[in-house]
């Protein structure tokens, strides 16, 4: 699946969750830069799962620290 298309859709999805207005790049970290708590993570993951009709298990989430890694993981999951 197309990484650019995945990125564009996640860029839109993350806007309401980016309450601090952080400039997001592939290197932005969820815990460090965005300072998300576990409930915010859950809601954001649910939004992505619904958008792409995929599951991102907590085991997979544990491997995802940066925005770029998230886009890569979702792109891969869409292709499966």
């Amino acid at each position: 699946m197309d990484r650019e298309d995945t990125k564009a859709r996640i860029d839109t999805l993350i806007e309401p969750f980016n309450k601090k207005g952080v400039a997001i790049t592939d290197d932005t970290t969820f815990a460090g830069d965005l300072e998300w708590d576990s409930l915010t993570v859950m809601d954001f993951v649910a939004a992505i799962e619904d958008e792409f009709d995929i599951i991102i298990s907590m085991n997979q989430q544990a491997e995802i620290e940066t925005y770029g890694q998230l886009i890569d993981a979702v792109t891969k999951l869409r292709g499966e």
Binding site: M42, A46, M58, Q60
Partner: peptide, 25 residues
Amino acid sequence: CAMGNAEVVPFKHNDLEAMEKRLKR
């Protein structure tokens, strides 16, 4: 969950729809 090797998928508290969506996928 952490001690086992299964894939762990949480859903929003007491939310039937969120639970069903995850089961479907």
